[in-house]
Design a protein around this nucleic acid. Structure first.
Lengths: 205, 205
DNA sequence: GCAAATTAATGATTTATTCAAG
DNA sequence: CTTGAATAAATCATTAATTTGC
């Protein structure tokens, strides 16, 4: 029996380093293609999946913003509500939701440079022979999960024996196979899930 | 190629009917496997992708709840904040934080039935090739986009290899892909050049 | 020194909000 | 106005740090 069901991804220092570097370079919400590149690269340092990369950027971005926001709040002397240890208590105080909402800064230009840098970093990975499929602009399909399905499926359809070479088992903490659960058991939706019962005694009392 | 500028998916009546039926049956957030089934089924009635199904359920659920909430709010005479016509010109007032937050109804039982029905419905679709998942309880892993990649990849791995073998390839597959558009178009992020390199990493290891 | 109990981080999901095509 | 699509915020859940008692 699997001693470690490995519930969640545990990034290696190298992976983390690369991700942070990318973030610093300006990458914030990579699209499906980019995510695949990144994933492929990071896979050399340990087991990883596309969703991990996706989530990482989501969380990192969100939490950076959160910290920043909190700090700014402090500057204003505004006591930002809760947030401290929202472990599971959530303590729904009537005060919440900081007024800031970042309403689309209307300026989606110029930082293109920054993005370019990030691209560069990622680009190296794909600097092999990718056809620059240009969609002009508009269409800018982006990063969402399902894209992957399409992509992979397509690929599968086109050519599935990519084989690859045979690189040694890099770093993965020998937990190789995963046997994706795919367990449905759809009992997860419903009006509002919460059922928080963390051992933390600090819960909502 | 029917250049379908296809900015967005346009569900056919049949598709919509089926989706609604499923929703009524209790399906709310299908997981990747289910979504694939549903997509495959609906594809018979028109072009459709997994993400369409995903989004449809997301939106439908959210909007049903929204409507409901709005109605309830009306009943109470409570002026629900910024909800009137969330068109886009709702003048975001600084006042928000709806007191209501559905704080765990503490009753996560009995709707099992409903869910089960939904399952059943979907089950029909997939009742052909997958192994019967035993829903026992607990672990209810679910539905998220990236799962798809994993799933498909796994499938690919198992199928492409030779189909029949029966040896669990224990190597992180996705390594074959390398060429991808990577069209940045990252016109959506906001630069956040906050040098950060803390996190937990580096520690002793 | 170590292992159980707490606390803090952070990966993974779900929900709410927003934008824009039709 | 309706609703598909996309993103951000909030939340949940698990792992790693840290503390505490022996």
């Amino acid at each position: 029996m699997p001693q470690t069901p490995s519930t969640r991804w545990c990034p290696t220092p190298e992976q983390l380093m690369i991700l942070e570097e990318m973030y610093r370079s300006g990458v914030r919400t990579p699209n499906a293609s980019q995510i695949q590149q990144i994933t492929a690269h990071l896979a050399l340092y340990g087991k990883i999946e596309g969703k991990n990369v996706f989530y990482w950027f989501q969380n990192h971005k969100a939490r950076e913003r959160q910290k920043l926001r909190r700090r700014l709040g402090r500057q204003h002397g505004q006591l930002l509500p809760g947030q401290s240890t929202d472990q599971g208590s959530s303590t729904p105080s009537s005060t919440n939701t900081p007024p800031l909402h970042n309403q689309t800064p209307h300026n989606f230009l110029n930082y293109q440079e920054v993005t370019a840098q990030g691209m560069n970093l990622v680009g190296k990975l794909e600097a092999g022979g990718a056809e620059a499929q240009e969609e002009d602009e508009a269409t800018a399909y982006n990063s969402q999960p399902w894209m992957t399905m399409a992509a992979v499926t397509t690929m599968m359809d086109g050519n599935c024996s990519g084989g690859g070479g045979g690189h040694p088992c890099c770093r993965p903490p020998l937990k190789t196979l995963e046997l994706f659960p795919t367990k449905s058991t759809g009992m997860k939706d419903e009006y509002c899930s919460s059922s928080k019962s963390s051992s933390c005694s600090t819960s909502t009392n």
